[in-house]
């Protein structure tokens, strides 16, 4: 930034447009309120009193069209897998996926004999962050979302591939 440096007052920051965009995205990743099983309760607990997700700019939305992040909270079954894919396709770009809990990561306790359980949601949609646990504590989910924010911040939407 050699040309622009020190030309303005102190309250003006000069940065790349790229970084501005990813900074704006990272601080308001609205998530798609979409719980399937036990983890949904912990997701609710994370959004409700005490843990309060909204203080880090993460707000639940009920419609996939308004959301940036899909938190797959819980077991995805074969019957649901087709729906999850459809919902993911309905979300607007840029979009990110957090696989919450061991079921969404790998099928979890239902891995061995679960004939109707999808062995990991990454079989149908791409996943950015995996949060382990059965179920993960709300703190763990918040940690995962902070990791996602870091990841978004590092992204260069204009010069490189998103996210």
């Amino acid at each position: 930034m050699g040309l622009l440096e020190n030309r303005f007052d102190d309250n003006i920051v000069v940065e790349k447009l790229d970084k501005l965009l990813s900074w704006a995205r990272s601080t308001s990743p609205w998530f798609f309120q979409f719980g399937t099983a036990c983890c949904a309760i912990e997701m609710m607990a994370a959004a409700a009193s005490r843990h309060d997700l909204m203080r880090i700019g993460i707000i639940p939305r009920s419609s996939p069209r308004q959301a940036d992040v899909m938190i797959v909270a819980g077991t995805v079954t074969m019957k649901m897998a087709l729906r999850v894919k459809k919902l993911y396709e309905q979300m607007a770009d840029p979009k990110y996926v957090v696989a919450m809990g061991s079921c969404a990561t790998s099928g979890g306790p239902y891995w061995q004999h679960g004939y109707h359980v999808l062995k990991g949601v990454d079989l149908v949609i791409p996943v950015d962050v995996y949060v382990p646990g059965c179920p993960p504590r709300p703190e763990a989910l918040i940690e995962g979302l902070l990791k996602l924010q870091e990841q978004i911040l590092e992204g260069r939407p204009l010069t490189r591939k998103t996210g």
């Binding site: 891995w111 061995q112 004939y115 062995k119 079989l123």
Partner: peptide
Amino acid sequence: LPEDWEGWPLRKNYEEQETYHGIVVPKVK
């Protein structure tokens, strides 16, 4: 189970189908 599922799961000799709408069903990925 979905309408187009094959087999009766709780019979003792049940074997899972290989794929369902292109998704792999058994545990081996």
